[in-house]
Design a protein around this nucleic acid. Structure first.
Length: 292
DNA sequence: CGCCCTGTTGGGGA
DNA sequence: ATCCCCAACAGGGC
């Protein structure tokens, strides 16, 4: 469920409800959530502290508490954070008791979601530095930036987009959408993209993410906002999960492939497949001028 | 009914 | 650097 637009939608909905409140208690029903840290250790660090700010980096949600204590949460595939939900809500894993009598419940049928601790600004920065590349919605993220990140990479461009250490927050769905918008085949080598393709792809990533945001993160059927409401309306993907349907741009049939181990949807007329995997650096070099 | 496959994520080992 | 598998569960196809 949560890629960048979904997590950001949750953050925006929740921030006004939790910022300024005190995290009075944290009841961890499933120790796996914060493993290998013991639930009591995590609780001791966060309980009683005020939430100064709810932040997001990539697909991570950060409760920035007093004294530079950061509770860093990941919803993984099926996690949800619900505000004052029905007590009978299934799959409850963690309960955040907030001052003012409100509560936040983390529910996650698959139990992949995690909560981690960073003590101090340095530890917080290090946590993300070793996991995440730049934010794709940052104005600095453009074709030139993407080109620099992709340089020399021979892995398929889809694997490149999914690598959080290169670009933060793009998941399987938005990767397909971005590639379709940019008319780039997912199997193409990331480092082999032309300058124009890098420009198109950076724009495609941005537009795909913004389309998801505009839809309130209502991408997958079971996406839920913190108030428990399912997406107000479903965001329609251009290609993702549309195998067998007609490409909205050219009418050719959308096909499903497996790239980087994930289901991948593509219009192979709009996104022409790379001719052939280059086997050896041929003698003919396209000597580029101005190459350092 | 039951088996098999797939899946929105990230980490670890080969 | 890259690929495969795994975590734990739901849901769909057969």
């Amino acid at each position: 469920m949560p890629e960048l637009p979904e997590v950001e939608t949750i953050r925006r909905g929740l921030a006004p409800l939790v910022e300024g409140r005190r995290l009075e208690r944290l009841e961890i029903a499933d120790p796996r959530w914060c493993a290998p840290l013991a639930p009591d250790e995590l609780r001791a660090a966060v309980e009683g502290r005020r939430v100064e700010r709810l932040d997001r980096r990539g697909k991570w949600l950060v409760f920035d508490l007093e004294d530079e204590v950061a509770l860093i949460c990941h919803l993984r595939m099926t996690g949800t954070l619900l505000y004052d939900p029905d007590p009978a809500e299934p799959y409850q894993r963690v309960r955040f008791a907030l001052s003012g009598g409100h509560e936040l419940r983390f529910c996650d049928p698959r139990r992949f979601g995690t909560g981690e601790l960073a003590l101090g600004a340095t530890a917080r920065a290090a946590f993300f530095a070793e996991r995440l590349g730049p934010e794709p919605l940052d104005p600095a993220f453009d074709g030139a930036a993407l080109r620099a990140l992709a340089r020399g990479r021979r892995a398929p461009v889809k694997a490149f987009l999914l690598d959080q250490r290169r670009i933060a927050g793009v998941g399987n769905i938005y990767a397909d959408e971005a590639l379709f918008r940019a008319r780039v085949h997912p199997l193409r080598a990331a480092g082999a993209l032309s300058r124009a393709q890098c420009d198109a792809l950076a724009l495609g990533v941005r537009e795909a993410l913004e389309a998801g945001l505009a839809a309130g993160g209502a991408t997958i059927d079971d996406f839920r906002r913190p108030d428990g409401v399912y997406g107000a309306f479903q965001h329609e993907f251009l290609v993702h999960t549309r195998a067998g349907e007609a490409c909205p741009r050219c009418g050719a049939e959308i096909v499903k492939l497996v790239v980087a181990g994930r289901g991948t949807y593509v219009c192979e007329r709009c996104q022409p497949r790379p001719r052939r995997v280059r086997r050896r650096p041929s003698a003919s070099r396209a000597g580029r001028s101005g190459r350092p």
